[in-house]
Design a protein around this nucleic acid. Structure first.
Length: 391
DNA sequence: AATTCGGGGAA
DNA sequence: TTCCCAGAATT
């Protein structure tokens, strides 16, 4: 895949393109909070939040985060609880953990000053090719194209690039082209101008305005083939999982919650303890522990009856009126159907908990006030809504 | 090269 | 429903 198959602009046309794009940007660029600062740390925070996350979603999170942790040092020293609270609901929680790790690196290796080159930025956790180039260009005027989904869509349409944008070779092609196009005098503005062009004009589905600001440079526009680009192959579909969340309240009115640990989804966030129900169909011949679990929730006869049938959840729901849900929670690659089971605390349920889980520090009994201060996922907030309705 | 990480907005 | 979003780390 050679760049010359797609790219044949003269130096004059390249310069015309830069001038046209930046003139459009100067008039039509979005006014965003992180564009009102030149603080590299603030730009860094914004870029990490914006990974796979829409601008409108990020704005409030960004304002709160910068108010709470205004400097690299503050971020480096922040307790994990605060980080998770600031990030709760935003998704991709490893982003904030990686960013704090990188902040510590900046403090120890760079005297608290963000490094200025792409090469150095790439050594920091959570900073990849896009984010590194974005920080380098916007905060430090380095001539590095920040190639995100917008730039790929715009570039694919300008040059009618009929290659799958997910592939490494295609990303390399985009970089070769954009290395030619980027304006060495205003690299940060160039990148952001293309982002705005992708977000405001050359969107995934909207028709272009008339006149289209890049009409003279957009082959797909001239050929009326814009909808064909970019080329992207289908994603694999998500796997379904059944979960049962325990809404267990003790005699003091405290409920049991658990913080998800390393290796689990939604790490660091608090939830009701959850059982994986995909396994329950095989519980009767499985361990005594699982058998004990079932006996608690369902009668032994029911277990025997259900164990070799499909659709046991539907049966369980019919027989156990107290089971609520399911609520559906969609991840990038998984779909959870989560049922909620209210459980009255007793000696038996205590035994059950110890049989099901190692009751370590990840578990806590909390009252509603304390609970409200814990960082929880959007999934858990959905469970809150249905338990409140029933109570 | 493919998979794993959340959640929401919009068609 | 499906797609996409200012992607990176891990396998």
């Amino acid at each position: 895949m050679d760049i010359n198959e797609y790219f044949d602009w003269s130096p004059e046309k390249i310069q015309d393109f830069r001038d046209c794009l930046l003139a459009w940007y100067d008039q039509n660029g979005r006014d965003l909070p992180w564009r009102r600062t030149s603080d590299p740390y603030a730009i860094w925070v914004s870029e990490v939040m914006l990974q796979q996350t829409q601008v409108d979603t990020v704005i409030d999170y960004y304002q709160r985060f910068m108010q709470a942790l205004p400097t690299v040092q503050a971020l480096a020293q922040a307790p994990q609880e605060q980080l998770m609270s600031l990030w709760q609901g935003l998704g991709y929680y490893s982003r904030v953990r990686n960013m704090q790790q990188a902040a510590k690196t900046v403090m120890s290796e760079y005297q608290g000053q963000m490094p200025k080159t792409l090469k150095e930025l790439l050594t920091l956790k959570g900073i990849g090719p896009y984010t590194g180039a974005a920080i380098a260009s916007i905060a430090f005027n380095q001539v590095e194209p920040a190639i995100d989904g917008n730039l790929m869509r715009v570039t694919a349409r300008l040059f009618e690039i009929d290659q799958d944008i997910q592939k490494t070779a295609t990303k390399r092609l985009f970089k070769e082209i954009l290395d030619q196009l980027i304006d060495p005098n205003r690299p940060g503005d160039f990148n952001q101008a293309l982002m705005d062009m992708g977000a405001l004009v050359m969107t995934p589905s909207n028709p272009y305005p008339n006149p289209h600001p890049l009409a003279d440079f957009d082959r797909s526009f001239q050929h009326k083939t814009s909808q064909l680009y970019p080329v992207k192959l289908k994603k694999t579909k998500q796997k379904q999982e059944l979960k049962l969340a325990l809404y267990l309240v003790n005699e003091k009115g405290q409920m049991l919650v658990r913080q998800h640990q390393t290796g689990e989804l939604l790490q660091g966030l608090w939830h009701f303890p959850m059982l994986n129900l995909n396994d329950i169909a095989t519980l009767n011949q499985s361990t005594a522990i699982k058998g004990l679990a079932l006996q608690q929730f369902f009668s032994q006869d029911q277990v025997a009856e259900w164990s070799n049938e499909a659709g046991i959840l539907d049966k369980a729901k019919l027989l156990l009126e107290s089971v609520q849900g399911p609520i559906k929670h969609v991840f990038s690659h998984r779909i959870w159907q989560v049922y909620l089971l209210p459980v009255v605390y007793s000696k038996q349920s205590e035994k059950l908990l110890e049989a099901l889980w190692l009751m370590d520090d990840s578990f806590r009994f909390v009252n509603e006030t304390t609970y409200a201060q814990l960082a929880t996922s959007t999934l858990q907030k959905k469970l809150d809504r249905i338990r409140m309705k029933e109570d």
